[in-house]
Amino acid sequence: MERKRERLGTPRAAGIAGVVFAVLMGLAIVLVRLALPGGAGGHEITVDAAQRSTVRTALELLPYAGIAFLWFMGALREQVGEAEDRFMATVFLGSGLLFVATLFGCAAAAVTVLDENQQDAPFGRHFAYTLLTTYSLRMAAVFILTTSTIGRRLGVLPRPLVVIGFAAGLILLVAGANLPWSELVFPAWALIVSLDILRARPPVTGRPAASP
């Protein structure tokens, strides 16, 4: 009975954590895109004080987005429970953890560039940009595909959401940085999944549990 009570809050926890992650991550991406419309990978980039302030604000949001994502990932895994497949669970956890690691690495590299004012030393800028667009987005794609596969096998995700997940994962995996604003695909998918989890959560009746 105690184990069952612990699991009652898991869907809500996953939904709330996913919404927080999606909002923070999406806001950070939008701020960076508005400050640097051409991206951060060009050789000739001049960033003024206002742009630097905007980018710094976006980077300060990323650690909290990563923390929320870890809660989101843990709550999703808890819903699977004993039905967890070891192979899919390994890919699920590995891709999620690597996404957070590369995201934090990208943020750290970008902060270093801003702090040191390396306008004429593009290595740090290219490193941060490549880490985000090449590696972080690919790990996000694997996470989406794995989650959608698990959701389809267990029947916990509606069919339209599974289709959306496969499409989003393939877009990030194949297109990646070549598609403008493609970074928003992952937080958008997380938001849709989270809202579906919150909407489908069984209502709480408020009646006390029957005594054994």
Rank of each mutant, 00 (worst) to 15 (best):
R3E: 15
R5F: 10
R12T: 14
A13F: 08
G15P: 05
V19E: 08
V20R: 01
V20N: 02
L24G: 06
L24V: 08
A28V: 08
I29V: 14
L31A: 09
L31Y: 04
L31G: 02
V32D: 07
V32T: 12
R33H: 08
L34V: 14
L34I: 13
G39H: 04
A40Q: 11
G42W: 09
G42A: 11
I45K: 08
I45P: 09
T46V: 12
V55A: 14
R56H: 11
T57I: 14
E60M: 11
E60D: 12
L61I: 05
P63N: 07
A65P: 01
G66N: 12
F69R: 01
F72Y: 13
G74L: 09
A75H: 02
R77S: 03
V80M: 06
V80C: 06
E82Y: 11
E84D: 12
F87N: 10
A89H: 12
A89P: 02
V91M: 09
L93I: 06
G94P: 00
G94C: 03
S95D: 06
L97K: 01
F99C: 06
A101R: 03
A101Y: 04
A101Q: 04
T102D: 03
T102G: 04
F104M: 15
A108Y: 14
A109K: 10
V113L: 13
L114V: 07
D115S: 05
D115I: 00
E116V: 10
Q118C: 13
Q118H: 13
Q119F: 14
A121Y: 15
P122L: 13
G124Q: 12
R125K: 14
H126G: 15
F127Q: 11
F127S: 09
A128T: 13
A128Y: 13
Y129E: 14
Y129P: 00
Y129F: 13
Y129D: 15
T134S: 12
T134A: 14
S136E: 11
M139T: 00
M139N: 07
A140V: 01
A140Y: 01
A141E: 02
A141T: 01
A141D: 03
V142L: 12
I144W: 01
I144C: 03
T147P: 00
T149M: 11
T149H: 03
I150W: 03
I150N: 04
R152T: 09
R153F: 09
L154I: 07
G155H: 10
G155W: 08
V156P: 00
V156Q: 07
R159F: 15
L161Q: 06
V162Y: 06
V163P: 03
V163G: 04
V163K: 04
V163F: 08
G165K: 06
F166N: 02
A167K: 00
A167H: 02
A167C: 07
I171S: 10
L172T: 05
L172K: 05
L173C: 10
L173H: 07
V174N: 09
A175Q: 14
A177M: 09
L179M: 15
P180T: 09
W181R: 07
S182H: 10
S182F: 11
E183H: 05
V185F: 03
F186I: 00
A188W: 06
A190W: 00
V193D: 00
V193G: 01
S194H: 06
I197E: 05
A200G: 01
A200P: 00
R201L: 05
P203K: 12
T205C: 01
T205Q: 05
A209H: 12
A210F: 05
A210K: 14
S211Q: 15
P212N: 10
